[in-house]
């Protein structure tokens, strides 16, 4: 079902249409919450608040075809509100250098079957700005750059170049990790 039709059906109480929207966009909302480093409980709260607000606005979404952008913007506000209320200061934004830091020590004892686990650990070591962008880009299904821009309050034109630098940085961390090197 197209998104405007699904929204209209959900506004009439069509649970299947609503569940279709939940299935399509929950990955994006969860990824946004994780991009802001919310823990399990806070991330669940931010996602739930976003859906509750959509229910409240079901018949008042001005541009139904841009629902993903509305959800991304709402999720960002919910995440930042949780962070403010918890009294955590936002992470300082770092410059992203083209030349990577030296690769960290790597656990050579990992077996091949744990490659994804190793990759995930390396990913978590990225500087915050890189980790944040890549975490949203990792959402499933893959989000449009316009929606990523709204989720992170970034210019849409900056996403491609920063994505490239951050992936290069991650590849550099992977290089030297004999477990992961074959796939970079």
């Amino acid at each position: 079902m197209e998104i405007p039709a699904a929204l209209a059906a959900a506004a009439r109480g069509d649970q299947a249409a609503w569940d279709g929207l939940v299935k399509q966009f929950s990955g994006l909302l969860w990824s946004i919450a994780r991009a802001y480093r919310l823990n399990d409980a806070d991330a669940a709260d931010a996602v739930q608040c976003t859906w509750v607000k959509l229910v409240e606005h079901l018949d008042r979404i001005a541009e139904p075809e841009r629902l993903a952008g509305w959800l991304a913007t709402t999720a960002r506000h919910e995440c930042l509100q949780l962070i403010r209320r918890a009294g955590r200061l936002p992470e300082p934004s770092e410059e992203i250098a083209d030349s990577p830091d030296p690769a960290p020590a790597v656990d050579h004892a990992l077996i091949v079957g744990e490659r994804n686990a190793a990759l995930w650990r390396v990913f978590e070591e990225l500087p915050d700005r890189c980790r944040r962008l890549l975490r949203v880009l990792m959402a499933s299904p893959p989000p449009a750059y316009a929606d990523v821009a709204l989720a992170l309050d970034m210019p849409v034109g900056s996403i491609g170049p920063i994505r490239q630098r951050c992936l290069n940085r991650l590849k550099a961390l992977v290089t030297g990790n004999e477990l992961l090197e074959g796939r970079s």
């Binding site: 609503w18 569940d19 739930q48 975490r135």
Partner: peptide, 20 residues
């Protein structure tokens, strides 16, 4: 990376239930 995220940080089932 997306496959790794789905493996190590999937959307919890309870989050999907609450959304529904």
């Amino acid at each position: 990376l997306r496959a790794a995220a789905e493996e190590f940080d999937p959307v919890p089932a309870g989050v999907l239930r609450d959304a529904s």
